[in-house]
Design a protein around this nucleic acid. Structure first.
Lengths: 115, 115
DNA sequence: ATATTATATCATTAAGTAATTATATAATTA
DNA sequence: TAATTATATAATTACTTAATGATATAATAT
């Protein structure tokens, strides 16, 4: 049975959280555990405002939650299933990675992959 | 950094396949089983060129595979884990749907949601 | 061979969105 | 209080990409 329009909109929105390389990079770092914004900036090598912008997006979508400790604000993934979804995706990519990489519809300016 | 740059690029690209509502709609219909392009057009109410464009994107990424039968071309999901990823996402959304729905980043609506 | 049906491709348009720069807010320390 | 550190916000710019409309290819039927 086909899903209703809203269900698809919402699900697409969830995946959009994962679909940007910078945002996904942040999420991958958060899979290690709770991190401050500064730690995320250092780990991802993104600019601080850029990290904050993406974090707000992720927080709005309830993919991450935050708590302040002094002047630091710590972020963490809000749900264990996020980790599961990413693990499953890795398994899928372990076989399909070449096809995904060669997809030409998006130009993500990726560096060359050695095979 | 836990993962290398390429791994993140490729994973982001995979999720981009799911992140557009039209494309996700097509994928959801394909979860029911093999469908011709015409059946997908009818089920999704998207235009035929639009469906074909998205199918090419999905095929390039190896998310779907196709086979011709006469003048019809049938598409199906290429890997059972795609269905698993979508099922897991549904479970996640069963609790987080409100937050995702209320995410304002993509509507360019500047209203902070702090806790 | 011509017409019809099914699908793909391509150029263009229009909308979306990531990154940057500058600035603001908040907590802490001197 | 003023300075410093950590993070957030906002406006702008540059880039990305979905949808459309026109056309092309492919298979089949007449």
């Amino acid at each position: 049975m086909i899903q209703n329009h809203n269900a698809i909109q919402i699900k697409a929105k969830l995946f959009r959280g994962f679909s940007d390389p910078s945002r996904l990079n942040i999420i991958e770092v958060l899979r290690e555990g709770k991190k401050s914004v500064g730690e995320l900036v250092e780990a991802t090598e993104l600019s601080q405002p850029n990290v904050s912008n993406h974090l707000r997006c992720l927080a709005d979508c309830d993919l991450v939650k935050s708590e302040r400790d002094g002047r630091y604000i710590y972020y963490q993934l809000s749900d264990a299933r996020i980790d599961q979804i990413l693990s499953l995706s890795e398994k899928l990519l372990s076989e399909a990675a070449r096809g995904v990489f060669e997809c030409t519809r998006y130009e993500m300016n990726a560096e060359a992959v050695q095979e």
